[in-house]
């Protein structure tokens, strides 16, 4: 066969993967397989079949999985951005099912994160630290939402009213710091919707940002979304105000989203008429 779109591998890679194919065919599980799959993974950590076959072989050989975890430490640092490395660790930990191993893993991740100098969200740092370093880090905002609202109630967070007030205060403070930050506005809208808090409760905070006269900061995300059912029920005046803001966005401040804002205007006006 004369395949289309071939990749020009190095001889070393080609030999290793040819050998791997032979092993898969024969179904061999041996320490030789572990050496080979490690070799392939080091050359191409995205080779998911090598990872899968390695895992099956470890189980078949009853290999000590904590040893495998330590072997993977170097690989994880080297291929921090390759999810297969982390998935493999996760499989090992699930199979190990041991508390000390999980604790060691947590410590490892902290070290791994320390070498990662870039601005990623990584599990070792808290979202608060990350947001202090960069208030525009959307992954950190997302993680905060998950931790506060979607992963069970933490000790000390039993009073949900208090949690909501704390989150509102935190978010408003971050918005005041840098108003043109869609991550923070999305978070604000997110917590209001999640806790079914009427948007009208934050009108006084929002209004200065949503004013049509403040063209310098009237970036699209600045405007608080007035589509929420609570505000609309309050009557036509607030809808007309929203329409006025949307018009200025559509025609002046956010022309890229002109069609979207016009759709919102049409939608809001037709809902009044109903």
């Amino acid at each position: 066969m004369n395949p289309i779109a071939p990749i020009f591998y190095t001889e070393e890679y080609k030999d290793a993967t040819d050998y791997f194919r032979g092993i898969v065919k024969s179904g061999e599980t041996s320490s030789r397989v572990l050496e080979l799959t490690e070799h392939i993974i080091r050359m191409n950590p995205a080779h998911y079949s090598a990872w899968q076959y390695r895992y099956k072989t470890l189980l078949a050989l009853h290999s000590p999985l904590d040893e495998e975890l330590r072997l993977m430490d170097a690989l994880a640092i080297q291929f921090l951005k390759t999810y297969q490395v982390w998935h493999h660790r996760r499989l090992l930990l699930t199979a190990l099912n041991s508390v000390p191993a999980a604790e060691a893993e947590l410590a490892f991740i902290r070290r791994a994160v320390a070498v990662d100098t870039k601005n990623y969200y990584t599990p070792g740092r808290t979202d608060k630290e990350l947001l202090e370093a960069d208030v525009r880090n959307n992954s950190a905002w997302h993680h905060r939402f998950f931790v506060v609202f979607q992963s069970g109630v933490r000790k000390g967070d039993e009073d949900r009213e208090l949690v909501l007030r704390r989150e509102l205060a935190f978010t408003k403070e971050k918005i005041a710091l840098a108003p043109n930050n869609p991550s923070a506005w999305n978070y604000l809208r997110g917590i209001l919707e999640y806790t079914k808090t009427p948007f009208s409760t934050i009108t006084t905070f929002v209004e200065p940002y949503a004013s049509t006269s403040r063209s310098s900061t009237a970036e699209q995300e600045i405007v608080i979304d007035l589509e929420n059912p609570y505000l609309r029920k309050e009557g036509g005046a607030s809808t007309m105000k929203a329409v006025e803001i949307w018009r200025s966005l559509a025609n002046v401040h956010d022309t890229v989203r002109k069609k979207y804002w016009e759709h919102r205007i049409k939608d809001a006006l037709s809902s009044i008429q109903k």
Binding site: Y83, W86, R90, L106, I109, V113, Y120, P123, H143, Q150
Partner: peptide
Amino acid sequence: ERDGSSTDSFNPSSPRPPLGEA
């Protein structure tokens, strides 16, 4: 820009986060 780590990879017994970043 890719960050390959997983928030829950260190704790296999924790529930999978129901939602990843949009």
